[in-house]
Write a protein that binds this DNA or RNA. Structure first.
Length: 429
RNA sequence: GCCGGCAUAGCUCAGCGGUAGAGCUCUCGGCUGUUAACCGAGUGGCCACAGGUUCAAAUCCUGUUGCCGGCGCCA
């Protein structure tokens, strides 16, 4: 037997035909003569009506069925202007496959409660839409990188040194040693490219940051890319092209989901290169005009990033941050030793979603920077081999995928952009 | 780590010294094709925990725990 999905039914191509639908009860209303069920599946929602006088037995099933019960509905698919979506199933049979206990999620919900029952909240239209958009983002990344000749690799998650300094590493017992969970593939990336030239990974990163902001979680999926011979200009173009490819794919694959989230696919299709590019110094000037005074040398915070983002109708790339606040592997600008050849891509309302740079290829300068950050070069010995044996110019970046999803979905917190978000205070469900 | 806030029914909240409340969910009944319908009734509480003040504490005070928001840090 063929079971059509709801999105297919709502096209109306099978109107007038008898169909069999599998789904879950999302909503229910009844009066003396007629009962309505709203049935959902992974593709949408459709109304089912059942008239009592025709079918007392099945009317009673509909009248009593609990929210989120799994059901199989047989009936006639009919065009009906009174039904949301324009079509409804006039049911002849309702079979309960999996009855439902009193479903805890109802009309009034706090964010905290929804996170407590996140495993059930995933069934909502909103989070289902997010999961599908998220999948399209991953798809776009894989397709783009592979088409551009990048090889996908898998770095280890157990590590012995951090790439961003030690304070935000999760410590972990590893037999009789202490190790850390990976916070970036960086130290491995720069080794992979000597074999592959162009490499990428999409893997979890773990950060023990005690952050309680709308855009921080302790575990997130990190899309990272690294390539030999790529200069700074090439890096900026890569950022633009990746973001553009993601927007295009989501607009193409997720028209329904974007509509559920009140987002316009046409707006996404406008996100094409070139993006506005400004330097850190120019960013400070723009902020000053908005009466936000940041001393030179301070990193841009969430408030600053959002204020800059508002000035442009596309993501904006901010380049050349002060050297003091940059990680040791970032290349210093040969034309201005005070700044690095780095770039942050800021998305409207979200802030930083990509952090990248040309990498320092000179061994001596790397050692100086390590020392400056108080890191022990011995911990980075295998990494330093990248500079000992045939060092070449190279660049790369890391993207917080959940931040991209947050931006595309128009969410005001990253927690909604991840199926089971982990924060400082929440590790379940 | 710093600042601010919250904790009362399954959920969302009101009550702020004097008998524990409402709406929703759920159960039962009613009901013109309803759109998270509507009408009526019922079930449902160690008022986070531990001390203190008071004739009397959900309410005031102290501490503890849990959570939320903002900053910093970052993707």
């Amino acid at each position: 037997m063929k079971f059509p999905q709801i999105r297919e039914l709502l096209t109306g191509k099978q109107a007038g035909k008898k169909i069999v639908l599998r789904g879950w009860v999302a909503r229910k209303r009844s009066s003396k003569k007629i009962a309505f069920l709203t049935i959902r599946d992974s593709t949408g929602r459709i109304q089912v009506s059942i008239v009592r006088e025709n079918n007392e037995e099945n009317y009673n099933i509909a009248d009593k069925v609990g929210y989120e019960s799994a059901v199989i509905i047989e009936g006639l698919l009919s065009e009906d202007a009174r039904a949301p979506g324009g079509f409804e199933i006039k049911a002849s049979k309702i079979e309960i496959i999996g009855p439902s206990e009193n479903f805890p999620i109802s009309k009034d919900q706090s964010q905290e409660f929804l996170l407590d029952v996140r495993h059930l909240a995933l069934r909502s239209e909103r989070l289902t839409a997010m999961l599908k958009i998220n999948s399209s983002v991953f798809e776009a990344l894989h397709v783009y990188f592979r088409e551009e000749g990048y090889t996908e690799v898998q770095p280890p998650m157990f590590t012995t040194a951090g790439s961003e300094g030690g304070s935000t590493l999760f410590e972990l017992k590893y037999f009789d040693k202490l190790v850390y969970l990976s916070q970036s593939w960086q130290l491995y990336a720069e080794n992979f490219i000597y074999a592959l030239e162009k490499a990428y990974t999409i893997a979890p990163s773990f950060r023990a940051e005690k952050s309680k902001t709308a855009r921080h979680v302790t575990e997130y999926w990190h899309a990272e890319v690294e390539a030999t011979w790529m200069d700074f200009e090439g890096l900026l173009e890569l950022m633009e092209n990746v973001i553009s490819a993601i927007c295009k794919n989501v607009a193409k694959k997720n028209a329904h989901e974007l509509k559920v989230l009140n987002r316009d696919p046409k707006e996404l299709l406008k996100i094409k290169p070139p993006f506005p590019r400004i330097t850190y110094a120019e960013a400070l000037d723009l902020l000053k005009k908005q009466e936000i005074d940041i001393p030179y040398g301070a990193d841009l915070g969430g408030r600053e990033e959002r204020a800059i983002g508002k000035l442009f109708d596309k993501p904006v790339i901010v380049t050349r941050y002060p050297r003091e606040i940059m990680a040791f592997y970032k290349k210093v600008d040969p034309e201005n030793p005070k700044v690095c050849l780095n770039a942050n891509l800021l998305a409207p309302d979200v802030g930083e979603i990509i952090d990248g740079s040309e990498r320092e290829s000179d061994m001596q300068k790397i050692l100086e920077s390590l020392e400056h950050e108080g890191l022990d070069p011995k911990d980075y010995d295998f990494y330093l081999d990248t500079r000992r044996y045939g060092s070449v110019p190279h660049s790369g970046f890391g993207m917080g995928v959940a931040r991209v999803v947050m931006w595309l979905c128009g969410f005001d917190t990253i927690k909604d952009a991840i199926a089971f978000p982990r924060t400082m205070t929440r590790v379940k469900p």
